[in-house]
Amino acid sequence: MQRRMISEILDGRSLVTASKDMTVRAACRQMTERKIGALLVVDNDRIAGIFTERDVLNKILSAGADPDVTRVDQVMVRDPQTIGVDKPLAYALYMMAEGGFRHVPVVDRNGAPVGMVSARDALGQDMVDLEREMKHLNELEGSIGY
C-alpha cells in the first residue's frame, strides 16, 4: 500500500476556522454546515486551539453550560499537537492513537495553519484498498474451486 501524504489529503480542502470569541452554538452551526467534527481556533494567524464535538458533549451538554453564552476559547483544547503538511498520514494516525484524539491540526513550515486531518481520513483510501484486496481474494478462491 502506498504512503498517503497529508498534503494529498488536504488538496482541494479549504481551511475552516473559528475565532476565540465565537459562541459554542455558532461554532456548532459552522461544523454542521460544513459536515466536520472539529474547528481550528485561530488567533493572529496561529493555532490557539481546537474545538471538537467531544468538547460540546463533555464541556457543554454534560456540564449544563449555555452554548449561546459560552465562548469557544472557554472550552477548546489549547495548544494542540500539530503535524507538518509534508508528513505521511500514518504519522498523524499514530499521534491520534497515542494521544487519544481524532483530529490533528496541520501546519506549514512557518507554523501557520493549513488544515486538519482526522481519523476518518484514513478510512477513505484504505476502504478502497480493502475492497480491491477482498475482490482479488474472492477471484483467487473461485479459480481454485473453493
Results as ranks from 00 to 15, higher is better:
133 E>P: 02
19 S>Q: 15
50 I>T: 06
57 L>N: 09
86 D>P: 03
124 G>Q: 10
140 L>R: 13
143 S>P: 02
91 Y>I: 10
29 R>Q: 12
16 V>R: 00
35 K>P: 03
51 F>I: 03
71 R>C: 04
99 G>V: 03
18 A>K: 02
106 V>K: 01
93 L>H: 07
32 T>H: 14
82 T>H: 05
28 C>G: 07
39 L>C: 05
85 V>H: 08
9 I>C: 05
139 E>Q: 14
52 T>L: 07
108 D>I: 06
112 A>N: 14
79 D>F: 11
38 A>D: 03
102 R>H: 12
76 M>F: 06
86 D>K: 09
91 Y>W: 10
132 R>F: 08
114 V>C: 07
69 V>Y: 03
5 M>H: 01
107 V>I: 15
114 V>H: 05
12 G>F: 15
141 E>F: 08
69 V>A: 00
42 V>Y: 02
1 M>E: 07
10 L>M: 12
71 R>M: 09
59 K>V: 01
130 L>F: 13
119 A>L: 14
13 R>D: 10
3 R>E: 06
23 T>H: 02
107 V>F: 05
13 R>Q: 15
87 K>N: 08
133 E>H: 13
85 V>S: 07
104 V>K: 02
43 D>Q: 14
33 E>H: 12
20 K>H: 11
3 R>C: 02
105 P>T: 11
98 E>R: 13
131 E>W: 07
7 S>N: 11
79 D>L: 12
119 A>C: 14
31 M>K: 04
123 L>M: 13
18 A>I: 02
36 I>G: 06
105 P>A: 06
132 R>E: 15
133 E>T: 14
141 E>V: 14
18 A>H: 01
79 D>E: 15
128 V>P: 07
142 G>N: 14
61 L>S: 10
